[in-house]
């Protein structure tokens, strides 16, 4: 079994430009209006001028425990031994959407056929393109960099075998990861502290600490 690949994201370097989303769409030749495999969401809080807006870029994280794979009734989702990449065999998918329920990241998307497709870490091209591909190679080994990584203007997204990604993260991020942050599914640089989020949501209007989704 090869080393697990994973993503890294640094909200402090993300400029919210959506280059990752477009790069992904173009690499995989997907229509502009299809659901994004890699999304950028803008979370905001506060009232002008005490206002903040933070962009968050997300995709399938190829989780070590792949909750989607665990619940997929027809075993259409595969958690690959060789590189940990989670692929989908669209010839088995029944389109039940259960993977989307189980996924912590909202990564699975469904096209007009109703079949699931999602990020395959650019292992292959297009929906289902990763299924059955040989082991993922790093850029040094001649493999393609994932489109979102290779066009991230702020250098906020990284991907690779876990040890390589860990080596590039800040000590704080790596420590938090080791302590189980985000289920150890993705390495995220710390943004800020905010302990009383749940309380402030319950308290009502514009919770001081809550980052709200604008839209």
């Amino acid at each position: 079994m090869g080393e697990q690949w994973m993503f890294y994201f640094d909200p402090n370097r993300c400029i919210g430009c959506h280059a990752c989303s477009v790069a992904c769409k173009q690499r995989h030749d997907r229509d502009a209006d299809a659901d994004d495999w890699r999304t950028v969401t803008h979370l905001s809080r506060g009232e002008y001028p005490d206002f903040e807006e933070v962009p968050i870029s997300m995709s399938c994280m190829h989780c070590h425990d792949a909750p989607c794979e665990q619940v997929c009734p027809p075993d259409a989702i595969v958690k690959r031994d060789e590189d940990g990449i989670v692929t989908v065999d669209r010839d088995r998918c029944i389109g039940c959407h259960y993977c989307a329920w189980a996924c912590p990241f909202g990564a699975p998307t469904y096209d007009d056929e109703g079949l699931m497709s999602k990020c395959n870490l650019c292992l292959g091209v297009g929906p289902g393109g990763g299924h059955g591909q040989p082991e993922r190679q790093t850029s040094e080994e001649g493999g393609p960099a994932p489109a979102c990584v290779s066009d991230c203007v702020g250098d906020a997204i990284k991907a690779g075998p876990q040890s390589e990604v860990m080596a590039e993260a800040s000590r704080e991020a790596a420590e938090r990861f080791e302590q189980g942050a985000y289920g150890k599914r993705v390495l995220v640089e710390p943004l800020e502290e905010d302990a009383d989020l749940a309380d402030s949501i319950r308290e009502g209007d514009q919770p001081a600490g809550a980052i709200t989704y604008e839209g």
Partner: peptide
């Protein structure tokens, strides 16, 4: 569901017995 026939052929297709579905 998107592909009904695969669901109807559940003894063949639904192979993941750890899935509650």
């Amino acid at each position: 569901l998107a592909v009904i026939y695969r669901a109807l052929l559940f003894p063949i297709y639904l192979t993941n017995f750890s899935s509650w579905i």
